[in-house]
């Protein structure tokens, strides 16, 4: 049987055109699960955790409310980091043609599903 978290990550790649890699990490930067091939999940987890913590401070400094998502727009794709509750975060690597509408539609459900599963982790 497949791990449900892994299934969610793989299905995100199926449901949103342009999603190429995803890494689910703890807020302290450790890999929980990854659907990755070209990126190094351990490094991605550490960097995404650092980025989102900087993002929180950025939002604080700019008094722009709570951070929802952090996007690095690059010439050949994007990296989008979203908080998954207060324990984890999801880093998604996409190409430049990503279906942004589908991404925005799918990501709240994905985050919610992941949050529910991770909440069951007690030991």
């Amino acid at each position: 049987m497949n791990d449900p978290v892994q299934d969610i990550l793989v299905s995100l790649r199926d449901r949103v055109m342009g999603v190429s890699e995803t890494v689910l990490a703890t807020v302290d930067g450790l890999v929980v699960a990854a659907d990755a091939d070209k990126t190094h999940p351990e490094s991605m987890a550490a960097l995404a955790a650092a980025a989102i913590s900087l993002g929180h401070r950025l939002a604080d400094q700019a008094t722009t409310g709570t951070l929802r998502q952090l996007t690095a727009q690059c010439s050949a794709g994007h990296v989008i980091v979203t908080a998954v509750g207060n324990r984890a975060l999801l880093a998604v690597v996409t190409d430049e043609g990503v279906d942004g509408l589908a991404f925005d539609r799918e990501i709240p459900t994905v985050v919610d599903d992941l949050k529910k599963i991770l909440a069951q982790d007690t030991a």
């Binding site: 791990d3 978290v5 892994q6 793989v10 703890t26 450790l30 929980v32 324990r87 991770l118 982790d121």
Partner: peptide, 9 residues
Amino acid sequence: TLAGRPSTA
């Protein structure tokens, strides 16, 4: 081919 995952507790 898929593997399991570690806990986030």
